[in-house]
């Protein structure tokens, strides 16, 4: 059994109060919310995201419950390869931030696939540890990668062992997790989170 974090030990699955500490427009379609929760930082998503998008203002208190499970969680394993498609980057950025704050020397790379310039979430946080690719319309002055993720892009990230976290649409995750297997990752060390479209 995996070791539980202090928060999980303290309050597995219990309701807690969070405060919306900051709201930041990321793209025309995406806002990010910073929630302050005692001993816990996370983003709610899914059913409630329209509520967050349209209603919540800074200073609001919201009810949150969790964390529910302890699976798509990075616990300092190394090296780390993160692969995100579209808004699938969100949980991965939490890992990037945690690493930046706590163990900046630890090898962690992010491969991030978006359709067009407007879709880049966390644009001002992406640094040399990110390999970004545009699948449809790159910005006019873009000289970096274009097209869907492939073996070359994974190779450029330079992590071929350790632990992999993959998040995105189902099709994206199928492709990306296969690329990680091909690159040599142990299947037990590839963790995935998927969202629609549904099959």
């Amino acid at each position: 059994m995996e070791r539980l974090t202090p928060v999980e030990q303290k309050a597995p699955g219990r309701w807690q109060v969070a405060t919306v500490a900051a709201i930041k427009p990321e793209t025309p379609q995406v806002k990010s919310f910073r929630l302050q929760v005692p001993m816990w930082m996370a983003l709610a998503d899914g059913e409630v995201s329209p509520y967050f998008h349209d209603v919540v203002v800074e200073g609001d208190q919201v009810e949150v419950r969790g964390p529910f499970t302890s699976y798509f969680v990075w616990r300092g394993e190394s090296p780390v390869l993160l692969v995100g498609g579209g808004s699938g980057v969100v949980p991965l950025m939490c890992m990037m931030r945690h690493r930046r704050l706590t163990m900046p020397e630890l090898p962690m790379r992010l491969v991030y696939s978006v359709r067009k310039a407007d879709d880049v979430i966390y644009a001002d946080e992406l640094d040399g540890d990110t390999v970004l690719t545009f699948t449809r319309e790159p910005p006019g002055d873009w000289s970096g990668h274009t097209g869907h993720i492939d073996a070359d892009l994974i190779a450029e990230a330079g992590v071929d062992s350790g632990i992999g976290f993959v998040c995105g649409s189902n099709a994206f995750v199928e492709t990306a997790s296969q690329l990680l297997l091909d690159a040599g990752f142990d299947p037990q060390q590839i963790r995935t989170e998927r969202f629609g479209p549904t099959g």
Binding site: S177, Q178, L180, P187, I190, T192, T198, G199
Partner: peptide, 13 residues
Amino acid sequence: ESGFPVLTAGPTP
């Protein structure tokens, strides 16, 4: 849900 979402913790065996 009319579709059939896929939820899997890792790669598809």
